[in-house]
Amino acid sequence: MAARRIDLNLNGRACTVHAEENTPLLYVLRNDCDLKGTRFGCGASQCGSCHVLLDGASVPACDTPLWAAEGKVVCTVEGLGDGGALHPLQQAFIDEQAAQCGYCLSGILISAAALLQQNPNPSETEVRQALDKHLCRCGSHNRIVRAVLRAAAVMGVAA
């Protein structure tokens, strides 16, 4: 397959890449767009570390072909904040000390953002279900859940 021009809306900006359309979105984000926040974990859509928002849905970028993102809104962890300010989720993760090694967090933050877009006031059970597909080897799950609930409360106050 030959490389072709593919246009994306990436973190609120127009972005054009030249790649084969079956190239994994993760590869393009990390290597062509120089966005390193989205991590390569398992490469088989099983660990959750590579999740990005694609038209508001949390999807694994490791097995999402570039063609599937064409003309859609792609948001990586770098795009969560607003003009350099931290997203409430990012601040809550800092406040709750929800990270240890941090490798899984970009995907977790993305899935938490998708959850809060759909359900601004989730229960603890709903947060755990939304993040169930993400593996955190450090065992920070309880702090992560508290951080998502804290962000939901802060975002609810700001709304």
Rank of each mutant, 00 (worst) to 15 (best):
R4Y: 08
R5P: 07
N9W: 09
N11D: 15
G12T: 02
C15A: 13
V17Q: 10
N22G: 15
T23S: 14
Y27K: 12
L29G: 09
L29I: 10
D32W: 07
D34W: 09
L35K: 03
T38I: 09
T38L: 07
T38M: 02
G41W: 08
C42V: 08
A44F: 10
A44L: 14
S45A: 15
Q46P: 03
Q46V: 11
C47K: 01
S49Y: 08
H51R: 13
H51L: 13
L54A: 08
D55C: 07
S58F: 06
S58V: 02
A61I: 09
D63T: 14
P65G: 15
P65F: 15
W67N: 11
A68G: 05
A69W: 07
E70R: 15
G71T: 10
K72G: 08
K72N: 11
V74K: 07
C75L: 11
T76P: 04
V77W: 07
G81K: 03
D82I: 00
L86W: 06
P88N: 03
A92K: 06
E96F: 06
A98F: 05
A99C: 14
Q100L: 10
Q100R: 12
C104A: 13
C104S: 09
S106C: 09
L109T: 02
I110T: 11
S111Q: 12
A113N: 04
S123K: 05
T125A: 15
A130I: 03
D132I: 04
D132H: 11
K133S: 14
H134I: 07
R137L: 10
R137W: 08
R137D: 02
C138R: 05
G139L: 08
H141G: 05
I144D: 03
I144N: 01
R146L: 06
A147K: 02
V148T: 04
L149C: 00
L149P: 05
R150F: 01
A151D: 00
A151N: 04
G156V: 00
